[in-house]
């Protein structure tokens, strides 16, 4: 395989209402096997994927929100959340799951994976990507 490329998965849909967010998560986990520089962005209704306290026991669906906690194990450690999307939905970063990863370059210290960025910052990050995948 050639040089490492920057892959970004852009998630713009809420969980459960459609299959997109689960697909996006699964493809990101599968793609993580290819040793690329992978990040995920959560924009628009995509921010709802990271809402903490999801409980599907009464609706009979699989609670795949638990799998986001495994992203660190898959070396997906950059989860960008757009501030404006959170605000429009009455949410703050405290409403999101406290996702972390262990930094291999820093004595395996546990660090937060979620980075809240504003639209302008996210536009810059998107502009730097080699491959963008949308869900």
């Amino acid at each position: 395989m050639g040089a490492i490329k920057k892959f970004m998965y852009i998630n713009r849909t809420a969980p459960y209402g459609s299959i997109y967010s689960l697909e996006g998560l699964e493809v990101a986990l599968i793609g993580a096997a290819f040793d690329q520089d992978v990040s995920m962005a959560f924009v628009d209704d995509g921010v709802f994927q990271l809402k903490k306290g999801q409980d599907t026991s009464k609706s009979g669906m699989k609670n795949f929100s638990l799998a986001y906690s495994a992203l660190g194990d898959y070396d997906i450690t950059k989860l960008y959340v757009e501030k404006e999307s959170l605000q429009a939905r009455g949410l703050t970063v405290e409403d999101l799951m406290p996702l972390t990863y262990e930094d291999q370059d820093d004595d395996y210290q546990e660090k937060p994976s979620i980075r809240v960025v504003d639209s302008e910052q996210l536009a810059d990050i998107i502009a730097e990507q080699d491959v963008l995948l949308n869900y």
Binding site: Q54, T56, K58
Partner: peptide, 14 residues
């Protein structure tokens, strides 16, 4: 609908 609220992690207080 409560089961759909719960699935999405939305508490009644919100």
């Amino acid at each position: 609908l409560e089961p759909d609220l719960m699935a999405r992690g939305l508490q009644p207080a919100r």
